[in-house]
Amino acid sequence: MRSLVKMINLNEELTPHSLRHTHAKVGLEDIMERLGHSEDDTTRKVYLHVTKI
Protein backbone atom coordinates (compact mmCIF):
# COMPACT_ATOMS: atom_id res chain seq x y z
CA MET A 1 0.00 0.00 0.00
CA ARG A 2 2.85 2.34 0.81
CA SER A 3 4.08 2.39 -2.80
CA LEU A 4 0.56 2.95 -4.18
CA VAL A 5 -0.08 5.83 -1.79
CA LYS A 6 3.17 7.41 -2.85
CA MET A 7 2.45 6.79 -6.56
CA ILE A 8 -0.89 8.62 -6.44
CA ASN A 9 0.47 11.38 -4.20
CA LEU A 10 -1.60 10.76 -1.07
CA ASN A 11 -0.56 11.24 2.52
CA GLU A 12 2.17 8.65 3.03
CA GLU A 13 1.02 8.04 6.61
CA LEU A 14 -2.16 6.32 5.38
CA THR A 15 -2.49 2.67 6.35
CA PRO A 16 -5.01 -0.04 5.44
CA HIS A 17 -6.75 0.80 8.73
CA SER A 18 -7.23 4.38 7.51
CA LEU A 19 -9.54 3.06 4.81
CA ARG A 20 -12.04 1.75 7.35
CA HIS A 21 -13.65 5.20 7.41
CA THR A 22 -14.43 5.26 3.69
CA HIS A 23 -17.91 3.73 3.72
CA ALA A 24 -19.61 6.72 2.09
CA LYS A 25 -23.36 6.43 1.44
CA VAL A 26 -23.58 2.92 2.85
CA GLY A 27 -26.09 1.81 5.46
CA LEU A 28 -25.07 0.78 8.96
CA GLU A 29 -25.94 -2.88 8.30
CA ASP A 30 -23.60 -2.98 5.29
CA ILE A 31 -20.77 -1.40 7.29
CA MET A 32 -21.32 -3.90 10.11
CA GLU A 33 -21.11 -6.80 7.68
CA ARG A 34 -17.99 -5.46 5.95
CA LEU A 35 -16.18 -4.95 9.23
CA GLY A 36 -17.41 -8.11 10.91
CA HIS A 37 -19.19 -6.37 13.79
CA SER A 38 -21.89 -8.51 15.38
CA GLU A 39 -23.31 -5.65 17.46
CA ASP A 40 -24.53 -2.44 15.85
CA ASP A 41 -23.52 -0.54 18.98
CA THR A 42 -19.86 -1.27 18.17
CA THR A 43 -20.23 0.20 14.70
CA ARG A 44 -22.18 3.22 15.96
CA LYS A 45 -19.60 4.11 18.62
CA VAL A 46 -16.70 3.93 16.16
CA TYR A 47 -18.16 5.33 12.94
CA LEU A 48 -21.20 7.56 13.47
CA HIS A 49 -19.05 10.46 14.63
CA VAL A 50 -17.66 10.53 11.08
CA THR A 51 -21.05 10.67 9.37
CA LYS A 52 -22.76 12.86 12.02
CA ILE A 53 -26.08 11.06 11.53
Rank of each mutant, 00 (worst) to 15 (best):
L10V: 03
M1I: 11
M7A: 15
V26A: 11
T43M: 03
K45L: 13
L19P: 00
S18R: 03
K45M: 11
K52S: 07
D40A: 10
G27K: 09
S3E: 12
T42M: 14
Y47P: 09
S18N: 01
S18Q: 05
N11F: 00
N11W: 00
R44A: 06
R44W: 07
L10I: 03
S18A: 05
R34M: 15
H23V: 01
H17K: 12
L4C: 04
R2C: 00
K25E: 11
E39W: 01
T42L: 11
Y47I: 01
E12C: 03
H49L: 06
E39G: 02
L35G: 11
I31G: 06
I8F: 09
T51P: 02
T43E: 07
V5K: 00
E13M: 06
D30W: 12
I31L: 14
P16S: 14
T15K: 12
K25T: 06
K6V: 08
A24H: 09
H17C: 04
R44H: 08
N9M: 03
D41A: 09
L14C: 13
V50C: 04
H37A: 04
D40P: 15
G36C: 07
A24F: 15
E39Q: 12
I31Y: 06
D41M: 08
P16Y: 13
V5F: 07
M1V: 11
M32W: 14
I8N: 03
T51W: 14
S3P: 02
V5R: 01
T15Y: 07
E39F: 06
L14E: 04
D30Y: 14
N11T: 02
L35N: 12
T22D: 00
P16V: 14
I31D: 01
V5H: 02
L35K: 07
H17I: 02
L28I: 15
T22S: 13
T51G: 00
I31N: 05
E12D: 02
E12L: 01
L48Q: 08
A24Q: 11
M1L: 12
M1D: 09
L19A: 11
N9S: 10
I8T: 05
D41T: 09
R34C: 14
M1A: 12
T22W: 00
H37R: 04
T43D: 07
I53K: 12
E29T: 15
